[in-house]
Amino acid sequence: MATKKATRAAYGETLVELLEEGVDVYAVDADLSGSTTSAKLAEADSSRHLNVGIAEQNMIGVAAGLSLTGKVVFTGSFAVFGTGRVYDQIRNTVCYAKLNVKIAPTHAGISVGPDGGSHQMVEDLALMRVLPNMRIVVPADYVSAKAAIRLAAHTPGPFYIRMGRAAVPQLYDDGAGFEKGFELGKARVVRTGADVTIVACGVEVHLALTAAEQLASQGVQAEVIDAFSLKPLDDETILKSARKTGCVLTAEEHSIIGGLGSAVAELLAQYPNVLNKPLKRLGVQDRFGTSGEFDELFKEYSLDAQAISQAVCDMDGSFL
């Protein structure tokens, strides 16, 4: 079993690394510095960590102001508050003025678990995707989260980095130069196959890989794509795979409305004769989350490995 670590664990650590490398980095958080791990930056240099208290709107505004004095600024909180509660601040200040602010909340998706539906943000990708000037990356493991934070810090302008609470298996090598594999607008093919393409993001990537193993034992070869960069989407990689397999399934712990599934649907709808089976989107089916443990929730919402492999089989019985 691979090492398990949450994507959020990369947050504070990477901010400290960036500081040590000379990046003029700041974090603004809203009373969740321990949970988001931004507190690590405060430990390294307390003047670079601003805890605004339970005041998310002010968190975004303060970050905006700091960025206007030349700082690279990350905002925290949980995804439900760090995007939804402050949508207008992100829209009218950060994105409209194209500021160097990185929206980097944690605890996105249903993998938040026991806290329940109020805290399980499944609309954040939809909200952030529609904003002009916003770029979005969804790291699938701890290593790609480190790369995402570094990429955002080194690319001027607004960013959204979607991180989670739950520990997930490490998928990528963190050897020297690991971050070079993670580029804006680039997806990563993490498994090749000719029968079906599974485009996944976040925690769904490792679940898709597990599903691909199950499918392989039944003679179905799935290609698994980690859509690390949601906006811009890697049209080329996704189209190339779709043309090869003719069959695409998307998987995300986000509403099927407005997230990865929507982005892939919007892409494929523009090209005739790519798919020979209807696109299948796995995600939260227009409902809120609920309390439970990771495995229980991913089963309930048909997002676990079993659900993915079953969905592939349902797409075409001829696979079996």
Binding site: Y26, N58, V62, A64, G65, L66
Partner: peptide, 10 residues
């Protein structure tokens, strides 16, 4: 005002 506060701090 929030933006001003961030600027003032910076």
């Amino acid at each position: 005002l929030s933006i001003a506060v961030g600027m003032a701090y910076g």
